[in-house]
């Protein structure tokens, strides 16, 4: 087995994760470990708690019990999330990505944004108001925006629900070529 990479946030250890709302237990004692590398899918029927699990792992919600433990906890969050219904700021596609980059304190926002747009085939729509784009384009922009943040782990909550077909997504999702294993990213897709 390879040496443990102590600069990585992975593996992620989730133990006894539970969540309650209005006295109803929505998630009960979920435990798993997420190793470095690869794609992991969470599959389950509607209401099983798939989205909830992702939100708890991403830190958008606080669990009622249990823990979400990353290997290292460095200042900037190194995991990103794409939501089932993409949240588009009332700005151009390009400005949406630049806003996310400067929010997390990343430099060279303009060139990084252009690279992300190009990678996901959105270069021609860079100046288009994001909210006037089609559902599929918005979803692709949301993924490009998360990708630009260079996360080590990406939570995707049914990212293809707005797309007519999975194929454009599948072809654009692979990690950047030429990345070392240290910064290789994991694409977590919820099926």
């Amino acid at each position: 087995m390879a040496m443990r990479d102590i600069t990585s946030i992975l593996p992620l250890s989730v133990g006894g994760l539970s969540f309650e709302a209005d006295g109803k237990r929505l998630l009960d004692d979920v435990s798993f470990t997420l190793p470095k590398g690869g794609v992991t899918a969470i599959i389950g029927p509607n209401g099983a708690g798939k989205s909830l699990t992702l939100r708890l792992c991403h830190g958008l919600l606080a669990p009622c019990a249990g823990s979400v433990r990353w290997q290292t906890d460095t200042g900037r969050r190194r995991h990103a999330m794409v939501f089932q219904r993409p949240v588009m700021l009332r700005r151009s596609a390009r400005a949406n990505i630049m806003h996310a980059l400067s929010a997390v304190g990343m430099t060279e926002a303009a060139s990084r944004a252009d690279a992300a747009l190009a990678r996901f085939g959105l270069a021609a729509l860079a100046e288009r108001p994001a909210r006037l784009m089609s559902g599929g384009e918005q979803q692709r922009l949301a993924i490009a925006r998360a990708w630009a943040l260079e996360p080590e782990l990406l939570f995707l909550d049914e990212p293809s629900s707005q797309c007519s077909s999975m194929s454009p997504l599948r072809s654009s999702i692979p990690a950047r070529p030429g990345r070392s294993s240290r910064s290789s990213r994991r694409w977590r897709r919820k099926a």
Binding site: R55, H58, L60, R76, R77, A80, M81, F83, V87, L89, R90, R91, H99, A100, A103, V104
Partner: peptide
């Protein structure tokens, strides 16, 4: 209410979300 999850995901919570919200509104 529309932006909360996205902005929270970017670490923009509380008053840090205000500049984004004012500009978009």
């Amino acid at each position: 209410s529309e932006y909360r999850e996205h902005l929270t995901s970017l670490g923009l919570t509380g008053w840090r979300a205000i500049p984004t919200l004012l500009w978009d509104g």
